[in-house]
Simulated scan of single mutants.
Amino acid sequence: MKETFTKIFTDEQLPYLLLRYSNSNKHYKKHFHDTFSLGINEQGASIYTNNDKSYTLDKNMLSIVNPYAVHSCNSCTEVLNIYYMLYLDISWCKDIQKSIDESVNDFVNIPVDILEDKVFYTEYLDLCKFLFSDNYILDKEDMVIDFFVKFFSLYLDKSKVSNTSKEFDEIIFYLENNYKENISIEELSKLFNLNPFYIIRLFKSKINLTPHAFMLNLKINKAKELLQNSYSIVDTALECGFFDQSHFHKNFTKIVAITPKEYRLNFVQ
């Protein structure tokens, strides 16, 4: 039998989540959590029960567990299950929901136990792997927020964000003048006296980017200017406020589709 394992991801800068990555053929008794939970099988299939309903959890399916929902999820094949389970603080989830629907005052339970959707399954799997990677914590936070804005939007009324132009323009002006900094959503929230999730919703509604993704684009655009003007890759990374060369290289390649070195060679003879 293949050796079993369990890995846990937590980070003090993301105190609202815990991610479990495990393989198991153990059978769990029915139980509940005080968190909102989302899980998938990367390998194998399970019998997933939630209150009085039972499902076969397979590829391209996400199990949805509301707080205090009595549930279990146990392997139903000879294959050793490999799965991810993410546990989220309901206050954090409620704030995400409120950024989507302003009428939300308490966490809104999701009305289904299963989401069968290949796109969401793939995005969730990518998110889980990204959290366990050595990527920077602001990038991880950005990916978590982006995924759950999309996820909760499936089940909530999307309200219009009022007074968006003035607030959005003020934040954009600030970011454009402070592109060298690595500004967190909490810092923006304090600076502009706005709910952090309101700011996220504002950006998504206006340009379909999170504030962090917008900042990275600003940095890359400035980096392109510097590389065109013969700056070294090291100096460009420093001047644009990247954590290090690796962080610069990774994000530049994602956005420009070539490496900083390849880009620079087009302008420096």
Rank of each mutant, 00 (worst) to 15 (best):
L14P: 05
P15M: 05
P15F: 03
Y16L: 10
L17H: 03
L17R: 02
L17C: 07
L18H: 07
Y21A: 05
Y21P: 03
S22Q: 15
N23D: 06
N23G: 04
N25M: 13
K26C: 06
K26F: 10
Y28W: 08
Y28T: 06
K29H: 15
K30Y: 03
F32E: 02
F36Q: 01
F36W: 02
F36A: 01
F36P: 00
S37A: 13
S37W: 02
L38V: 06
G39N: 04
I40R: 00
G44P: 01
N50T: 11
N51V: 09
K53H: 12
T56C: 10
L57K: 03
D58H: 06
D58P: 11
K59P: 03
N60Y: 07
M61E: 00
M61G: 00
M61Y: 01
M61I: 08
S63C: 14
V65F: 02
Y68R: 13
N74L: 01
S75N: 08
C76W: 03
T77M: 04
E78G: 13
E78V: 13
V79S: 10
L80E: 08
L80G: 09
I82S: 09
Y83L: 09
Y84M: 09
M85F: 14
M85P: 07
L86Q: 02
D95N: 15
I96T: 06
I96A: 04
K98A: 11
S99C: 13
D101L: 06
D101F: 08
E102W: 13
V104P: 06
F107R: 05
F107E: 02
V108R: 09
V108S: 09
N109V: 10
P111L: 15
P111K: 14
P111D: 11
D113K: 07
D113H: 10
E116V: 05
K118N: 10
K118W: 07
V119P: 11
F120Q: 04
Y121G: 06
T122M: 14
T122N: 13
E123G: 08
Y124K: 07
L125R: 14
L127K: 06
S133C: 11
